[in-house]
Amino acid sequence: MSETTKVEGLARRLLAAERARTPIDPLTDEHPDLTLRDAYRIQEAALEERGEPCVGYKLGFTSEAMRRQMGIPGPNYGRLTRSMPVDADSGPIPLSELIHPRVEPEVALLVERDLAGPGLTRAEIHLAVRLAFAALEVVDSRFRDYRFRLEDNTADNSSAARLVLGAPVDLSSAPDLRLVGALLWKDGHVLDSGVGANAMGDPLSAVVWLANRLGEWGRALEEGSIVLTGGLTRAHPVGEGGTFVAEFGGLGAVRAHFGEEGQHAGHKADHDGGAHTRAERGPDPAPLRSRRRRAGLPTGGDPHGHL
């Protein structure tokens, strides 16, 4: 079996698990020698197979505490595709579309110009990022019981599933993102709390890491990308459903409501979903929208050829 066949086979296995909503065993059970480079190739192959445009990135394992808890050596990233953003006001997120979702509050940032690493500094990132959003990320590992190694999770697109964004906030009016507190509620009870610093010390540093990581592989972090910079609390199971709200100091609040099938679908696969709504609410909608359209998979070449 060639490397390509193996990568494509594992990518299809993950997609099948997602579509059938049936979790599988970690790929590394069968392929203990799977490398991180292989894992990103599987992620990429699955994205191609899925055929949806990408709208951004999500970072995983950005907190030291989370890495320790899961026994994961370092952070990773996944891609956000067009069907993932959910408009909070268009009905519940159907549980029937997900396996065993978990929710985490995060700071999302919009990258407004191409960032080509490696070697990018925090100052350069700061210039390219103007808008921040309160966000709830819905992760949904395709692996049974969330049992995985970093390579498995990376191949599985870092468990990416859904996201909800709050209203955009201009960073010039928001203070240091490290000191933004987040309070996570479920069904009217406080569930957890965290601070911006839990995302790699600073959500902006998380973007630095991402841009440089992509840069090492000869890729840019594209203009118009939304970056979910990593959970500020641990991920909390959705269980039988319910209403999650996250309140963020200076960034406002964001909600994710989960319900059963038959209720109005929360995400809209046929257009830009939450990102569309966000752009409409934004102070400068037209340029945002066009930027986002341009954001997509880079063309040509093996993005991980330099690994």
Partner: peptide, 18 residues
């Protein structure tokens, strides 16, 4: 019964359970 959420100006919110 359920989760009540009031959204107001300047990103303010009031969350409660009924």
């Amino acid at each position: 019964p359920g989760t009540l959420e009031l959204r107001g100006p300047e990103g303010s919110a009031l969350i409660a359970r009924i």
